[in-house]
Design a protein around this nucleic acid. Structure first.
Lengths: 218, 218
DNA sequence: TAGATTGTTAATCGATTAACAATC
DNA sequence: TAGATTGTTAATCGATTAACAATC
């Protein structure tokens, strides 16, 4: 076993996407008081081969130990650092319907470093109401709100018909990343990122997978 | 240009995952009254190369035409057929918090063929309340409810700490696919499918992407 | 006709898996 | 010590992209 190289500089996108999964699993093992975890055990928890796990973890600033595996506490710390769980990430939510409100009031956000700092809506009926301790503001104020709250991230929680317009506003307001909860395909300029968490597309994917015939591969 | 082969039998997973995106884009073009759409235009809408689009669409039972592209109406019909938009897919929602309730009341579900047929919760306070026209039922009745409603799909809309337990119940009750909205990594038996739509993991992914340094590739 | 665009094959790229020496 | 497990290299697998003849 060669010495672990310090600080991997780059990380493939698939690996990056798995980090939240590792984090959840490791936090669980830590909660159980476990001190070491092997690549095989982690693989079982995430549905990956032990080989993939070792390749993935080689991108982190951490070394495992032969015969024991990876130190749970350290792994948890490294993952939390990468995922920014200890920092505060300000999130502005557009759409104060049930979905946006659910996000604003979701308890698990805070424990991972995310803080909803504003929620806005187009509907005058909703403006002024209180959601998760925040007063719903009119969408027209988005630019000012993003500036004054220094929000880094925006959540698109509006119907798919207005999603692109909202995305454009958020980009113009200067957020660096968008979480898209709508069914729309959002287009944003190169320096901005979009991550989709689309439950409707997810349900459709399940329908396609369920057909059995129709899917190839592993 | 050779004749299109009828009925592609299999479809790679990445292609399958892009079908909802194609569907949304094509529905948009159709709404504009457009009759033809090229692979290049579709690629722009989805953030793909025209080459990838042509490869993807070759898996569908449909032929394009040189110089014009793909017929929007036919493409829409083929996609709707694949995605099951015309059939009814019964969905049982576990968790009647704001997130589960948002799903139950979400208007876009019905237009794509998904029908919430039951919503359940562990909390006695919530049991009996009405959400989206459904009466919240106690979680203990899950097996009976799935049977009587003939639900095919289950939504896990509970805190991550109870997510695996809920997944186990849904699998035991016989649903064929799970939409996971929680942060947990769900483990299910081989014949069951899980699709994640995890907003918290999505926000974390945005943080990782935002670091700029740290990501490799395209 | 000339030019744009498909459908398909082949090349490239990159992720996953396998294999195994190092080593605890 | 013997055996389990890492870290890493190489092989494999599969997805994306490029290229181009067919053709509308």
């Amino acid at each position: 076993m060669r010495t672990a190289r310090r600080k991997a500089r780059t990380m493939p996108l698939p690996v990056l996407r798995r980090l939240p999964g590792y984090h959840h699993a490791v936090a669980g093992f830590r909660g159980q008081g476990r001190e070491w975890v092997s690549s095989q055990t982690l693989g079982r928890a995430l549905g990956l081969t032990s080989s993939t796990v070792r390749q993935d973890l080689s991108h982190l600033d951490l070394a495992g130990t032969a015969k024991r595996g990876y130190p749970v506490g350290e792994l948890d710390a490294v993952l939390r650092d990468r995922l920014g769980s200890a920092r505060t990430h300000r999130v502005v939510i557009v759409g104060a319907g049930m979905l946006g409100s659910a996000l604003a009031e979701h308890g698990e956000l805070a424990t991972h470093g995310f803080r909803p700092v504003a929620i806005l809506d187009r509907d005058p009926e909703r403006v002024g109401q209180t959601v998760g301790g925040l007063t719903v503001k009119p969408i027209e104020g988005l630019g000012r709100v993003v500036k004054s709250t220094r929000a880094e991230l925006g959540v698109v929680a509006v119907p798919s018909t207005s999603a692109q317009a909202v995305a454009d506003l958020l980009v113009a307001a200067g957020v660096r990343g968008l979480l898209n909860l709508s069914y729309a395909n959002l287009r944003v300029p190169p320096r901005t990122h979009v991550v989709n968490a689309r439950f409707l597309a997810g349900l459709q994917e399940l329908v396609l997978l369920g057909k059995g015939s129709g899917v190839r591969g592993p």
